[in-house]
Design a binder for these strands. Structure first.
Length: 688
DNA sequence: TTAGGGTTAG
């Protein structure tokens, strides 16, 4: 039998009913924990008419905007239904926009708000934070004016957000002024300024403030650790870290990240093993730190350990892992990382789409890069740029330029890097006129100021076509000081066209800006060798010896069944060395029958005997890798080789011939681009 | 019914 409650039992069934009660909304709203709860309350409020009560609608707005629920679109729709929203409702909505990376909209709302209300000490910190996020310092300064006019010059909440905004926008001087004019300074205000100094690299000043401040918390200590660690002053960072009264995860991570970025892997590893708990940021700092320093294999190994330990990789982990794969250029590893992304349900839109396109291009599979590109539904400028750059490095200039036009038709504005991709494509394909055309288009139609990299491309384009004088004029007329790459381009062009005068001039300038560049001496001696000036070759070699400069040794590698096989010049250490050398002898015979005459013009050594020079060429590392590939890689699969230096003339001609003789596709990535060798031809059309 | 800085990977 149903037990009646006392209140129910008081009413006789025949007596008059109690007056209709308004649904008790307040406690109901208070109990909302999830978005689902709030939606239910929202629906009920609409059904019962309670929504029309301004306090109920405002409360719903606050719930949707609560960081735990964080439903911006619902918050906005509730706000739009409130007939006369009060200042509190405006404040809640603006804050919600800022927290959801919609600072621009937040600032627009703020402009609407000031027509009706004077902003208060809740409005201002939110909108100032929005300015900081957007790096909108001029907007921030205007709001600062309003802060003064509205009488918030001594409000600690408003002032600390101003200090933070100025220091994040790189205006540390203004941050300091705001700090100085505050009579009463609390911990947060001190922290904002210390963080500002540490961020802009003024670590000494940060330390000075730190020593002056009356009390410190985690935040103050960690800002300092991070500031010193980021600018490479690890000893001081470590000292501060060791002196911390107690450490939290963030401070460990800051220290580890700093060590990794400075390349002190040993200290990073010690800390990594010592720390009591790790989180995804710890792992990501380690992985991307290795990647940052070119330790691609180490980065991938650690990625694997992380997976084995059962951690779930996130967006940033994949950016690091994909970049490491791009550096190694090992396609099978790239496919594996891509499949893991799919398995973890990580979208390829956004930055990761760019990483994937870049990875497939740099691993030699430009077709996969295109497939990824086509599958991205909302293509952003970065995606277009990545695919243009990728096609360019594979010598597919026409395709790159088609994509560029397609992009312009969608109404997207190319930026400086897009043009770098376009110009690079032109240079790799020897398209001189088009190169000039796009260089002009960039400045005239898009108002983009050419950087030194753009000039580098233009010089490269002209040099490849043999217009050395014009290239020299461009360099001399540049508004900035030419760098190492520019002179190297002119020097290589001079070698390719046998121009000793310009070659010597370029080498002289190059030695001036970068005396440690071994390539410079090598190319200059190549120029002299080609002209048969052996005395000059010797003097260049003497100079190299005196300055302690050594030619970077050639090294090639090839991946087979998940293993990387590395070959150095004249290497006999490989387990299959015997087979490889007999394959090389076979290659030599076949090349000879095909009528190949070795091109010894680029041999650095001063060898009298032609035979010795030929022998030097035959030891080049990519030949060992090709021989290995011919022995081991299945006949239907391309042989993919990665090389640390530029492919030399003779290796280039023999690889073309070998692709025909053995009917194999050979893909070589050298230090600047890809060569696809097939049926006796190369995709670079002999421009490289 | 709002509550400053939020530091570490990118």
């Amino acid at each position: 039998m149903l037990q009646l409650t006392p209140s129910q039992s008081l009413h006789h069934p025949l007596s008059s009913p109690p007056p209709p009660q308004i649904f008790p909304f307040s406690p109901f709203l208070q109990s909302c924990k999830t978005q689902h709860d709030v939606k239910r309350a929202h629906a009920l409020s609409l059904r019962t008419g309670a929504f029309d009560h301004p306090s109920i609608a405002s409360r719903l707005l606050a719930l949707y905007a609560d960081p735990k629920i964080n439903s911006l679109s619902y918050a906005r729709s509730v706000f739009d239904l409130i007939r006369h929203p009060d200042l509190i409702s405006w404040n809640i909505l603006i804050k919600c926009y800022v927290e959801n990376q919609r600072s621009h909209d937040a600032i627009c709302l703020f402009h609407e708000l000031v027509h009706e209300f004077t902003p208060d000490s809740f409005t201002l910190p939110s909108v100032i934070k929005g300015c900081a996020r957007l790096n909108a310092v001029s907007e921030g300064k205007q709001i600062h004016g309003l802060v003064v006019k509205a009488g918030f010059s001594l409000d600690k909440f408003v002032q600390s957000s101003l200090v933070s905004m100025y220091s994040r926008c790189g205006e540390i001087g203004y941050a300091r002024k705001v700090f100085d004019q505050m009579g009463e300074r609390d911990l947060v205000l001190w922290n904002c300024l210390i963080d500002g100094y540490a961020r802009c690299g003024e670590v000494e000043l940060a330390l000075q403030l730190f020593n002056e401040m009356p009390e410190r918390d985690y935040f103050s200590w960690t800002c300092l650790v991070d500031g010193f660690a980021k600018c490479g002053r690890l000893d001081i960072a470590r000292d501060v870290f060791d002196r911390m009264p107690s450490r939290n995860l963030v401070s460990w991570n800051a220290m580890i990240n700093g060590c990794m970025k400075s390349g002190d892997f040993e200290m990073a590893y010690r800390l990594f093993n010592e720390m009591p708990t790790k989180d995804i940021i710890t792992w990501n700092s380690m992985i991307s730190g290795y990647e940052f320093n070119g330790q691609f294999m180490e980065a991938l190994k650690l990625f694997l350990v992380m997976l084995k330990e059962g951690l779930v990789p996130n967006h940033t982990t994949f950016v690091g892992a994909l970049s490491a794969v791009s550096g190694l250029a090992v396609l099978s590893k790239g496919k594996w990382v891509h499949s893991l992304m799919v398995k973890h349900g990580i979208e390829s839109e956004g930055v990761l789409g760019t990483s994937l396109i870049d990875m497939y291009s740099k691993c030699g599979s430009v077709d996969s890069a295109l497939t990824v590109f086509r599958m991205i539904s909302k293509k952003k400028l970065g995606h277009w740029t990545a695919v243009i750059v990728g096609l360019g490095m594979h010598g597919k200039a026409e395709h790159a330029l088609e994509i560029f036009s397609e992009m312009c038709r969608t109404g997207l504005q190319p930026h400086a890097i897009t043009f770098l991709g376009v110009l690079n494509a032109c240079s790799h394909a020897g398209l001189v006129e088009l190169g000039r055309h796009y260089f002009k288009m960039m400045t005239n139609d898009y108002g983009i100021e050419p950087t030194i990299e753009h000039y580098g491309c233009l010089v490269d384009i002209l040099c490849r076509a043999g217009n050395l004088e014009e290239a020299k004029d461009i360099i001399e007329g540049m508004p900035m000081r030419p760098n190492k790459l520019i002179w190297m381009n002119l020097l290589s062009g001079s070698r390719n066209f046998g121009n000793i005068n310009i070659g010597e001039y370029a080498a002289r300038c190059l030695i001036e800006v970068a005396p440690e560049t071994s390539g410079c001496y090598v190319v200059l001696s190549n120029i002299y060798a080609a002209a048969g000036k052996w005395d000059k070759v010797s003097s260049v070699r003497e100079m190299m010896k005196k300055r302690g400069i050594r030619k970077e040794p050639g090294c090639s590698y090839i991946e087979h069944k998940g293993m990387l096989h590395e070959f150095n010049v004249g290497d006999k250490s490989h387990p299959q060395a015997k087979e490889i050398y007999s394959k090389m002898a076979e290659m030599r015979e076949k090349l000879k029958s095909a009528g190949h005459v070795p091109d010894t013009s680029q041999v650095l050594l001063c060898l009298e005997d032609e035979k010795e020079k030929e022998a030097e060429l035959e030891n080049h590392s990519e030949r060992l890798a090709i021989a290995f590939g011919l022995i081991n890689v299945d006949s239907g699969t391309p042989i993919r080789i990665i090389k640390n230096l530029r492919v030399c003339n003779d290796c280039h001609s023999i690889t073309k011939l070998l692709s025909d003789i053995y009917n194999r596709e050979i893909i070589v990535r050298d230090n600047s681009r890809f060569h696809h060798f097939k049926n006796g031809l190369c995709s670079c059309k002999d421009f490289w």
